[in-house]
Design a protein around this nucleic acid. Structure first.
Lengths: 338, 338
DNA sequence: CAATCGATGGCAATGGGTTGCCAAGAGTTT
DNA sequence: AAACTCTTGGCAACCCATTGCCATCGATTG
């Protein structure tokens, strides 16, 4: 090591010396005001301010074990939908002066696991967005650090999800009311909890409403995969397509346009997430949205509750936020009879 | 403090005891392989692996002053354009096993400044995306920690930007070749370096090409501001609109559609950033893009070079990456004569 | 006036890992 | 066999802040 490029700030010792007191007094002036007289405290703070002293968070963390830092792991940062989650999480963390570390798992359970292991001793807890890890890994992680899941549920772990059971029912009702009797779900990744839940909910709702529902996939939920998904859906002869997310739905719509299939005249499409672009594409996309910012915010809030001093009110709350079906131009009356 | 929720992992002392060596030997087995025999080293590593030992990065940082962490500050995380920067930055940081801390400044210099101050003793350096801070603050910060700017230049500081001079020239050439002689620039935020550069470049290019260029604004670069911007542009009688970014451009297009102004027949629109939605909106948006992922990546790379051991090759490189004008349906031949 | 008490400040250990310096042992040279 | 070098491992200080425990001092009380 040649020269430290980083300017080391004044330490508690410098302040103590300048103020003519012991280091412990300086420390207490900051963190335990009751233990030091008002006059001394004021004097110490004045000297500290003059020297530009800032407590070293690492030294503090070393002893206390709390880093005032949480990690957020997202399974795919390229999906605009996660932006909202990130935004909400960042906002909430900042409000409590917590530092938010962002990690992209690139849809790989392996990367997700490695990154978590790498951070486990540096952060107070984790929020995992659409984790692709198997249940066992999550439980094991939760035994070491507080964990809050977003868009995934697991008994015993805290989570925040949108109400997809209700939401999927709305989708099916919407399509059924338009005369669609053959739905197809373009499934998301195999290890996506969300994909399982959506399919189960769509299936149940379909059965109850007397609609035929099938599933194909899995598809990587990106616009680029829309081609294959669209062709599969056409081949299956469905008139109502429910895509795993908006990106996939947009890709499907593009492919259908290429093949001169009219949306919504020939086929209706529904997506999930209500991303920014859903309102801008042509035709604009009917999609199941929800307050994703609130999901991010709520997840961090629960986590802060768990990592903070004192026991949390509920150890592992499972929050379910409402969805809203945003009806746009990609869905319309079916022209094919049953 | 009642009970530590966090399970403390094994320390170097545990490993030393289990392996029957001194703590210093364990430390060196990891960080200074040359100083310990191959056999001992192997043995220590085996024992460490068995115990699941992971070095505590904070304890390490305490002595070395390097935290293996960098902070990325973005001026507005809601802008999809920054996603690409974030993605590139995250990717590059992860590749070098650096932790990336994400902070959203919410377009507020005040928040930006406070957050930086809060993090300054926890991170090795900063990448600032479209910083809204005044030059003096940036210089002052750079004196304390390595800093790399994205989408902003400042003499003496490292930076990565897209070549907007060239890009703006392309825009003007494109519009001029379509017969537009009256351009208007819908300016971005007052303290945005980018807005200054774009206007200067547009103006210069316009002068050289014999096109009239005017500017109105500033506008907050969001779709919601498109209404006011569009009305202003119409009032100014321009046939070519250059919006500060795609979001604003999309908002403008929506407003023009409302007012039954045809795009591109009556008015052409050009945006900046080539965000995901630019290709999906109607009409699709002509925009000045570029490899934003590479901007993020390059910025982090330069920063890592600066925070890492040894002197960086160039102390403050100023990287300029090429832009590309993506021509879509929002620009067309002017129907109005000069 | 002595005994007690509360308020205040200091000493020193602690947390986990790194590193300069010294010592012991192995191997080499004459 | 003695003197020497080289390799390897251990001791202890250090990074910075926190905190349990003790000492001191003035003030209150019997």
């Amino acid at each position: 090591m040649e020269l430290a490029d980083t300017v080391a700030g004044p330490t508690i010792y410098d302040v103590a010396q300048a103020a003519g007191v012991a280091t412990s007094t300086v420390s207490r002036a900051f963190s335990n005001p009751g233990r030091v007289s008002a006059g001394t405290r004021e004097h110490v703070l004045a000297v500290a301010a003059e020297l530009g002293y800032r407590p070293n968070p690492h030294a503090r963390a070393l002893l206390s074990g709390r880093h005032h830092t949480i990690a957020m792991v997202v399974s795919d940062i390229t999906n605009p939908h996660y932006f909202e989650l990130i935004r909400g999480a960042e906002q909430r963390a900042k409000a409590s002066e917590y530092t938010l570390v962002l990690v992209n798992a690139e849809e790989s359970p392996r990367i997700e696991y490695d990154q978590i292991q790498r951070l486990i001793s540096s952060v107070d807890g984790f929020v995992l967005a659409a984790s692709r890890l198997p249940d066992e890994n999550l439980m094991q992680l939760a035994a070491q650090r507080p964990v809050v899941l977003m868009n995934r549920e697991l008994p015993g772990l805290a989570s925040v999800v949108l109400d997809h059971v209700q939401g999927c029912r709305q989708i099916v009702e919407h399509l059924a009311s338009l005369g669609h009797h053959r739905l197809i779900y373009l499934a998301g990744p195999r290890n996506s909890w969300m994909a399982k839940v959506r399919w189960a909910a769509l299936r149940t709702a379909s059965k109850e409403l007397g609609v035929e529902a099938r599933r194909i996939g899995p598809f990587t939920p990106k616009a680029s995969q829309g081609g294959a998904a669209a062709d599969g859906a056409l081949h299956a002869g469905a008139t109502g397509i429910v895509a795993h997310n908006d990106l996939l739905a947009i890709g499907v719509a593009q492919r259908l346009a290429q093949r001169s299939v009219r949306v919504p005249d020939d086929i209706s499409i529904v997506g999930f997430d209500n991303i920014f672009a859903a309102d801008l594409c042509t035709p604009s996309l009917t999609t199941l949205g929800g307050a994703h910012v609130d999901v991010g915010r709520a997840a961090v809030e629960i986590l802060l509750d768990a990592v903070g001093p004192g026991r949390p009110a509920t150890p592992t709350p499972q929050v379910v936020l409402p969805t809203e079906l945003v009806i746009r131009d990609s869905t319309g009356a079916s022209t094919k009879g049953p």
